[in-house]
């Protein structure tokens, strides 16, 4: 029986496939039904936040920063409450990272402000002496891609029932509705509205001017995303 397998490439390949696919079938597939319910207080990303998330991915921030607080005292002391599965319900892709060259960012919105990020992204070592993080000055001039973020919102709302324009429950018992535009123009207007709030807390005159002129630099979107991580 065994020898037959060794000289019949087709059935050999089938055998190998069964053996290697087994783990995936048992381990991964059945878990899909249950693991993706959001916890209370988790809302989908707004258009600007999603555009900021794209900036985060574009620059591979996840190569050096994790977004996963493990349930150890040393981590909860440093970063806040340990991460819960439901908090990631709207994260496509997940951004846990695999290396902490810099600190974890899963709850960075709780303890860093807009102007802290602004100064830090321009010159990290000036804010944190000894920092080895490179500066990200081009984010102050590159424009955020709002249209792609909007296309992504529409896609996840359609295929994965992400609750845009619907009330989601918050921790204090209230509800929050994350708005999604009905057209590209409206989506851009919504993003700009949120961008103006961010820019009001910033000092860089070029960024302020750009936002006033209706343009959104990448840094504004990125900060919106950072502030949403709580």
């Amino acid at each position: 029986m065994f020898h037959w397998l060794e000289k019949n490439p087709f059935f050999f390949a089938v055998g190998v496939f069964v053996v290697i696919a087994f783990a995936g079938l048992i381990e991964i597939v059945p878990n899909f039904a249950q693991a993706s319910r959001p916890v209370i207080g988790t809302a989908p990303y707004s258009t600007l936040e999603l555009a900021g998330r794209h900036v985060y991915i574009k620059n591979s921030c996840n190569a050096c920063h994790s977004q996963l607080i493990r349930p150890f005292k040393s981590e909860t002391d440093r970063y806040g409450h340990y991460s819960l599965s439901g908090e990631y319900a709207y994260d496509r892709p997940f951004l846990w990272g695999s290396k902490r060259t810099g600190p974890d960012l899963h709850r960075v919105g709780n303890y860093r402000t807009t102007d802290w990020h602004e100064n830090h992204m321009k010159d990290p070592a000036a804010v944190v002496p000894g920092s080895i993080m490179p500066a990200y000055k081009w984010m102050f001039t590159n424009k955020a891609d709002i249209n792609t973020a909007y296309a992504e919102q529409l896609t996840v709302a359609q295929y994965f029932s992400v609750p845009y324009n619907k009330p989601v429950p918050m921790k204090d018992g209230s509800t929050k509705t994350v708005k999604m535009g009905a057209s590209v123009a409206e989506a851009n207007a919504l993003a700009l509205e949120q961008a103006k709030e961010i820019a009001a807390d910033m000092k860089d005159q070029d960024v302020k001017d750009a936002v006033a002129a209706g343009e959104i630099p990448e840094i504004v979107a990125l900060i919106a995303y950072m502030n949403s991580l709580k």
């Binding site: 993706s36 994260d91 496509r92 296309a151 992504e152």
Partner: peptide
Amino acid sequence: FGAWYHSVSMYAGTNDALV
């Protein structure tokens, strides 16, 4: 509209990490 090459993962959060 938006970047033609962009896509969004079929899996979310913990499931995405698992896969």
